[in-house]
């Protein structure tokens, strides 16, 4: 159990997929202009990441090495189709706003990276936890960025107006450059303040 906890802590902080390994940036930047869409995207990614890691790990003994990438992609794509169909049926509005980014979970480097780096060599239970924690590590970064972008860019959160009429929207925040600046700022703050090089402390959060 302690191993599982260690995996979890590492994925939260020192091996965080977004701000340390800089993977899965596409969706990080694209969906974070509204909190609601971000939340839906995170749930979709959590589902895909944990279950595909679990499945790849189950199959790891029967997969010929030469075609393993193809098998992994097919496993991932199947789960993404489930997410896509579910969203389309229950939340058609959000589905339309997310557009191609749901399908792009397939090529999200985090999913493929975890399958290659972890699930191929570890038992299913641990792989599931690894997938789940990498997903959570991705999600909280996205949610933080989304809160700032939506609040500053449209003066609202989850679609509800928070700031009064005096607030002048920063249009730049909901557009492309704002996304780049916010992520860079986030990386800067986290790396500069919390992750001292060769720090001895174990996963702080």
């Amino acid at each position: 159990m302690s191993k599982a906890r260690q995996i979890f802590a590492n994925n939260m902080t020192r091996e965080n997929p977004v701000f340390i390994q800089v993977l899965g940036i596409c969706s990080t930047l694209a969906v974070t202009n509204s909190l609601k869409n971000t939340f839906v995207m995170c749930v979709g990614l959590l589902f895909t990441l944990s279950l595909s890691n679990f499945t790849v790990s189950l199959l790891r003994r029967w997969m010929p090495t030469r075609i393993r990438m193809m098998v992994e992609v097919l496993v991932i794509a199947s789960y993404v189709i489930v997410v896509d169909i579910t969203l389309k049926a229950f939340y058609p509005d959000i589905w339309r706003q997310l557009g191609p980014y749901v399908g792009l979970i397939i090529t999200n480097c985090i999913v493929m990276g975890r399958a290659e780096a972890f699930a191929l060599t570890n038992p299913p239970g641990l792989s599931f936890i690894d997938g789940l924690s990498a997903g959570v590590g991705y999600s909280y970064v996205l949610l933080v960025i989304a809160v700032f972008r939506e609040l500053l860019g449209s003066g609202s959160l989850w679609g509800f107006r928070i700031l009064g009429d005096w607030w002048e929207d920063w249009a730049i925040m909901v557009m492309a450059p704002g996304a780049f600046f916010m992520l860079a700022l986030f990386i800067w703050i986290v790396k500069g303040l919390f992750l001292k090089p060769e720090a001895k402390k174990e996963g702080a959060s």
């Binding site: 800089v22 780049f180 600046f181 860079a184 990386i187 800067w188 986290v190 500069g192």
Partner: peptide
């Protein structure tokens, strides 16, 4: 600045 090396400055 140290925290910005690599990914950070590229994103900016």
């Amino acid at each position: 600045p140290r925290g910005l090396e690599g990914a950070g400055i590229t994103l900016i």
